[in-house]
């Protein structure tokens, strides 16, 4: 699994690529936690557009980070672009009680429609 991270102002945007299972969960967890050492980060975004598989090990990674963000003043976690199997696992887990859901692509499409 690959991970691309961008920090912009107070936001950490994590784009994951590939299959998120138990085997790669600890590596991803450690990389994100290193970046989250920056206390100025208030918004954590998980972009799951290019995740091709995820099981409950991925839920563990997201939930623990979301709980840590919630302990920060003004901290929040957002999931964007989750679809298919990934979205079904997320919904089953109840992760959306702690994490917000946004759809970046549909918002982008909406903007371009308005521009036309």
């Amino acid at each position: 699994m690959e991970m691309r991270a961008v920090i912009s102002r107070n936001m950490l945007h994590i784009a994951l690529l590939g299959e998120l299972d138990h085997h790669c969960a600890s590596g991803i967890r450690d990389k994100i936690d290193t970046l989250l050492c920056d206390p100025s980060i208030k918004k954590l975004v998980f972009d799951l557009k290019d995740v091709t598989f995820m099981d409950s090990s991925g839920i563990g990674v997201i939930l623990a980070r979301a709980a840590a963000m919630k302990r920060r003043k003004g901290g929040r976690t957002v999931i964007v672009n989750a679809q298919g199997q990934i979205e079904r696992v997320l919904r089953l887990s109840g992760v959306y009680t702690l994490v917000e859901r946004e759809d970046e692509e549909s918002e982008a499409r909406g903007c371009s429609m308005r521009m036309m």
């Binding site: 409950s56 090990s57 939930l63 887990s93």
Partner: peptide, 11 residues
Amino acid sequence: EQERSGLGFTV
């Protein structure tokens, strides 16, 4: 402590 979500059998 290993961040197991406890959802394996549920899934």
